[in-house]
Design a protein around this nucleic acid. Structure first.
Length: 531
RNA sequence: GGCGCAUUGGUGUAGUCGGCUAACACGCUGCCCUCUCAAGGCAGAGAUCACGGGUUCGAGUCCCGUAUGCGCUACCA
């Protein structure tokens, strides 16, 4: 066992005692039952859809209980950090309304980046050394890899335990010597685990879970040759969530296996364990099998996919809530946005993230959006993702407003847009800049109406055109036009006696449609003509 | 290999103490409406509730086993 004096030489002489941090971070003054949750993304790339999933649930939980939700950047792996991810995160947090309630300037429980909490971890690491619950380990990565290979070859459990834990009982003299030689070292936890023991704990989503006890002497503090000298996830989780006074740890189910270690750490540090809620990960089909939605393989795993395509946040969030708990899927958008999540009602199997379903929800979402909100949403999206469209829209604002008022009025429920990126294809016909007019009467799109007929129809339509304000009256002139050229004036008549006519009214209106819009499909011609 | 978690139509789920002729939404097919596309209306196909045992008058539901999938087994989170 190392002496207290020796242990202190391993750390900064000014390093505070635990009592200091504990007074810095008192429990929050919150109503009874209030829940504090946190979301801890790592800046190792883009924000994962699963991150938004967990974050929005955590925020819901906190807010509906009168508690607090915060984001803590878990940047303890400096080697894997990707430049620019923090900016990407900020954009995504804003878009999906999962911004932190707390930050370094409005709260005393910060800092909210783990790399800035270095001293806190050091204090507690020193504390564990002092009580002999931790020890310095000089094993190199190569040695560790070698050890794992041997264990695998011998079909033994891999890890740093038992006789494999070579640095577990180093004498103070050995430790001193190796430090003087300049050997870098980590601080490892002296696990009190008993391999024959099983631990039991209650998960807020899954109920009782049983697990083999942890026997691994996991790393607490990473290499002494690094600066800042940061903790592993396990250690940071226990220290931070305790000091930051988190009351429910909501995280992915991949952490279930680590709970025994975490429980040991809470005990070793004299902390009270925090209730866990392990949520199933979003899945994805890959051929016949399913797998976790992957950052590498699936572009819908990157939240930028939704932002750039212009899926409204409200639609995505609604879908995500429904995935977690199907009760939400049955609700209206307003209800689901304002209802409290119940952890025990959450599913335990990883749901398949289905883009088709999202599109359906998103179409409905955009369709029910009040005109002004839809307009605002479209303009915001185009400003950031389609500058050309943005300019066309802003120079034609009255027209855009009219289109939205006529076509996008919620009562019509025209569900033709799942995302704003589709606006060009669906509504470009209203903007001269966005479609090439069809002027060639032999254009194949007019088929089966023949060239000569196209010319006649177009000429007559233009010559006799009257801008009627009533929809039926307006379309009546198309019917007259059709009848004048031997086409059936209604689809019903053509259907009954196709041999009596040159064609159906639909052929005529299609010819007009194409001439007018360049498209084979469009909203009602009456609306086209009036915008 | 060890350990954990999961498994209800194509997809997501509901199915509280066993009473199921297994429900809802999306998707799919057909019809109706209709100037086209949507939307809407109507109808339909699609599930021996992963498999095998057991308990029971009765099992999607309880128990045991198997399979499959996912995860953990890192100085990644």
């Amino acid at each position: 066992m190392l002496t207290a004096e020796f242990i202190d030489t391993l750390f900064d002489a000014e390093l505070p005692e635990p009592s200091y941090w504990e007074t810095c971070y008192p429990p929050r003054d919150l109503p009874p039952g209030a829940i504090v949750t946190r979301f801890g993304p790592s800046p190792t790339g883009f924000l994962h859809t699963g991150g938004v999933y967990v974050a929005t649930l955590g925020k819901n939980l906190a807010h509906h209980s009168g508690g607090s939700y915060f984001i803590r950047i878990e940047d303890t792996d400096q080697a894997r950090e990707v430049a620019g991810s923090r900016e990407q995160f900020a954009r995504a947090f804003k878009y999906f309304r999962i911004e932190s309630d707390e930050n370094d300037s409005n709260s005393k429980w910060g800092p909210y980046e783990q790399s800035k909490r270095e001293l806190i971890y050091h204090t507690y690491a020193r504390e564990l050394l002092r009580t002999d619950r931790a020890y310095p380990c000089f094993c190199t990565r190569d040695e560790l890899a070698q050890m794992t290979a041997e264990q695998t070859a011998a079909k033994l459990q891999t890890g740093y335990y038992g006789s494999w834990a070579r640095c577990r009982n180093l004498s103070q003299t050995e430790v001193t010597n190796r430090i003087q030689l300049g050997n870098p070292y980590t601080i490892r936890f002296r696990s009190p685990g008993d391999p024959s023991k099983r631990v039991e704990f209650v998960d807020l989503i899954r109920g009782r879970i049983e697990h083999q006890d942890n026997v691994n002497d996991i790393v607490l503090l990473k290499g002494s040759d690094q600066s800042p000298r940061l903790p592993t996830y396990h250690f940071a989780h226990v220290v931070d969530d305790t000091l930051m006074r988190v009351t429910v740890v909501l995280r992915g189910e991949e952490w279930i296996s680590s709970v025994p270690v975490h429980l040991q750490l809470f005990t070793a540090l004299g902390f009270l364990p925090i209730p866990y809620a392990h949520i199933a990960p979003l899945m994805k089909f890959d051929g016949a099998s399913r797998r976790k939605l992957s950052k590498r393989k699936d572009n819908e795993a990157d939240v930028a996919f939704y932002i750039d395509s212009g899926y409204p946040a409200g639609a995505v969030l609604h879908y995500l809530r429904g995935l977690a708990n199907s009760r939400f899927a049955e609700m209206t958008f307003e209800e689901s946005a304002s209802s409290a999540l119940s952890l025990s009602d959450c599913g335990v199997a990883g749901p398949i993230f289905d883009l088709v379903k999202l599109e359906s929800i998103s179409r409905e979402f955009i369709a029910q959006l009040p005109t002004e909100e839809a307009l605002e949403s479209l303009l915001t999206w185009s400003r950031e993702n389609d500058l050309e469209l943005s300019e066309i829209l802003s120079t034609n604002l009255p027209l855009v407003r009219r289109i939205f008022a006529n076509e996008r009025q919620p009562a019509l429920q025209r569900k033709d847009l799942a995302k704003w990126r589709e606006f060009r294809a669906a509504y470009g016909l209203y903007f001269q800049e966005l479609f090439p007019p069809v002027s060639d009467p032999s254009d194949p799109r007019f088929a089966p109406v023949e060239r000569a007929m196209v010319v006649k129809l177009a000429k007559d339509f233009a010559d006799s055109y009257r801008h009627e304000e009533d929809k039926e009256a307006w379309f009546e002139q198309i019917r007259r036009l059709a009848a004048a050229h031997g086409f059936a004036p209604t689809a019903g008549q053509y259907k009954k006696n196709p041999e009596c006519f040159a064609g159906s009214i639909s052929h005529v209106s299609n010819a007009i449609r194409i001439a007018l819009t360049g498209l084979k499909q469009s909203p009602e011609l009456f609306l086209v003509a009036h915008n």
